[in-house]
Structure formats: structure tokens, C-alpha cells
């Protein structure tokens, strides 16, 4: 008797692979992005089946939601630049110099070999080798939180997470530099319904995002998932034009970008000393410190992701050129 869940797993895995193929082979770029979003959500579902709800939340919110929004924004810009904004026609960008079919086929064969090698290695790997489970379980009482993934992210491997926040900061700096002086594609007209939807959805999103942050101490959730959900607030505000970035707001935005990194690094430096190393929180304050870092990092993540979506630094554009004052 076959377990119905096995059938579900097989169908889900097939759907994920089929969606990946479809996303890369469909001609219309808009359809490609939509297929990718469905692919990402189904991957998140697969990760729930593999008992990784934290990863699934992060993938659904950041890997699929924010990435999908970034891709759609870029597609909008490309359509604006190429003058096909108002047209419903499919947009497939043709290469300047077509690659010979032989080269493409050789590349594909090469990729196929690599994939085959990976599959052989995976099937031949010893099943259930020793992991970090026992070590983490042993150290959990010292972490100050009850949820293992949060304990690993914010305590045992806090250096990684600090560097991750730095990468996010570097990304927003790079995007502002790349798009410096670039004229912006006009935002799509969203219509009346969007305004009402925004008003209804915004409070709910704020509550959900804050809840995800708070619950991270004892259950799946945390700074990154909560931050991504709160970034959706920024996206909605930008899209409904309820908030239009002004040049004068740059200082506040910059402050919000570095807030998480600065707080994180400051806590690491402050707890160091007195025989302790960086990130070795004193046990009685561990939960407070972790929640403090998480809260400030969440604000940074939300603002940074929204800024990555907006792209261009808000500067006043004048006719003669860029007015930076």
C-alpha cells in the first residue's frame, strides 16, 4: 500500500521541475516571471514537507515575493526603455549577436554531465551522516531562545548573520550607485481598486510581519521573514503612491539601512570583553539582546528591501542634468 503522502511528494516534485523548465522556456518574459513565482511557492511547500518551515517562510517571502517584485519592476523598466510599455505583445529580448546552435548544445550537454555527476554523488552518499543536531540540542539552553534555527542564526552563527546584513547593505549601496542619474520609468497606474486594497491590507501586513518577528524566539519565524513581510508594506506604499520618496528623505533612509548592521556590530563589541568573545551573550540578557538585534535588523531589512525595489536614489531631476543638492 503506497502512502498517499509519497504520491503527493512525487507530484509536487514533478510540478516543481516542470515549472522550472516552463519558466526558462516560455517566450514571454511576463509569463516567465509568473511561472517563477508559482515555482517558488511550490518549492516553499516542498520545504514544509521536509520539516523546514523557517526556510519555507524565507523562500516564500524573500526568495519569491521580493524577487518576483524586483523582476517585474525590471521588466516594466525594460518595456519603458524599449517603447513597448502600452502594448500587450510578448516581449522577448533578442540577442545582439546570436549564439551558434552548436555552442548552445555543447553547453547544455556539459550542464547535463554535471547534473548527472551530482545525481550519482547524491545517490551514493551515505544516508543520514552525523549532523549538528546533537551539538545544537546540547547548547540550546545557553542560547536564550527556544527555537533552534533562531538560536543558530542569532547566537551560534551570529557572524554569518551579521555578514548577511552587511551584504544587504552593500547591495543597496551598489544599486544606488548603478542607477545614479538614471531617469525612472513612470510608475504603472494602479487604479482606484489598489488604493482601497492598500488601505485594507496594510494594517494586516504590519501585524503579520511584527508577529513573525516576535514569534521567531520560540517557533518558525524571525527577523528575515518578518522584515520581508514588512517590506511588502513599503512596496504597497510605493505602488499606490501613498509614499513618494523625496530627496530630503535620503538621510533617514541611509540611517535605516545601517541601523541593523550598526546595532548588531555594537552588541557584539559590547558583550565582548570580561573573558567573553563577540556574540557570547551573557545568559540572563541573551533573549533581550537577541530580540533587540532582531527588531532593529527587521527595520533595516524592510527598508532596504523596499529601497532595492524602488531602485534609483531619490534625487531631484532637473532638465539640464542631475541636481544633487
Amino acid at each position: 500500500m503506497t502512502d498517499p503522502l509519497v504520491i503527493f511528494d512525487l507530484l509536487l516534485a514533478l510540478a516543481i521541475v516542470a515549472l522550472a523548465v516552463a519558466a526558462l522556456s516560455v517566450r514571454d518574459l511576463f509569463a516567465m516571471i509568473v511561472l517563477f513565482v508559482i515555482f517558488g511557492l511550490l518549492s516553499a511547500l516542498a520545504w514544509v514537507r521536509l520539516s523546514a518551515p523557517d526556510v519555507a517562510l524565507a523562500e516564500a517571502a524573500i526568495g519569491t515575493g521580493v524577487t518576483g517584485a524586483l523582476l517585474l519592476k525590471t521588466l516594466h523598466h525594460l518595456r519603458f526603455v524599449s517603447g513597448t510599455l502600452g502594448q500587450q505583445a510578448a516581449l522577448g529580448v533578442t540577442p545582439v549577436t546570436p549564439v551558434p546552435v552548436g555552442v548552445t548544445l555543447a553547453n547544455a550537454a556539459f550542464c547535463g554531465l554535471i547534473t548527472l555527476g551530482l545525481a550519482v554523488a547524491f545517490l551514493g552518499a551515505p544516508a543520514a551522516g552525523p549532523g549538528f543536531d546533537a551539538l545544537v540540542a546540547e547548547a540550546m539552553p545557553l542560547s536564550g531562545v527556544d527555537h533552534p534555527v533562531t538560536g543558530v542564526l542569532l547566537n551560534f552563527r551570529a557572524y554569518d548573520t551579521l555578514m548577511e546584513v552587511v551584504v544587504l547593505l552593500a547591495a543597496v549601496i551598489a544599486v544606488w550607485q548603478i542607477e545614479r542619474g538614471l531617469s525612472d520609468a513612470p510608475a504603472p497606474a494602479m487604479g482606484e481598486v489598489w488604493q482601497g486594497f492598500g488601505r485594507l491590507a496594510l494594517p494586516a501586513i504590519v501585524v503579520v510581519g511584527t508577529y513573525l518577528l516576535w514569534v521567531g524566539a520560540e517557533a518558525p519565524g524571525g527577523a528575515f521573514q518578518g522584515g520581508a513581510v514588512l517590506a511588502a508594506v513599503g512596496l504597497l506604499l510605493l505602488l499606490t503612491r501613498a509614499y513618494v520618496p523625496q530627496p530630503g528623505h535620503r538621510g533617514i533612509a541611509r540611517g535605516a539601512f545601517v541601523l541593523g548592521t550598526a546595532a548588531f556590530a555594537l552588541v557584539a563589541l559590547l558583550v565582548a570583553g570580561g573573558g567573553r568573545v563577540a556574540f557570547e551573550y551573557p545568559l540572563e540578557h541573551a533573549k533581550t539582546l537577541i530580540l533587540l538585534i532582531e527588531g532593529l535588523v527587521t527595520i533595516s531589512i524592510a527598508v532596504t528591501l523596499a529601497a532595492l525595489f524602488h531602485g534609483r536614489e531619490p534625487v531631484a531631476l532637473t532638465k539640464g542634468g542631475r541636481d544633487d543638492a
Binding site: 524565507a58 549532523g131 545544537v136 552563527r157 547591495a171 531589512i301
Partner: peptide, 26 residues
């Protein structure tokens, strides 16, 4: 219970990937 360390690594990877994607798209 699953091993939490790879989970944390994947979450880190997802955030790094969205940063890289944003720069590439810019």
C-alpha cells in the same frame, strides 16, 4: 527534529541571493 544549521545556512543564502539579484537587475 531536523538539523537547524543547514536551515540557517539556506536562509542566509536566500537573503544573499536577493541582494545579488537586485544588483544584477539594476
Amino acid at each position: 527534529a531536523p538539523d537547524p544549521v543547514p536551515h540557517a545556512l539556506v536562509i542566509t543564502g536566500i537573503v544573499v541571493m536577493v541582494s545579488a539579484t537586485a544588483v544584477a537587475l539594476a
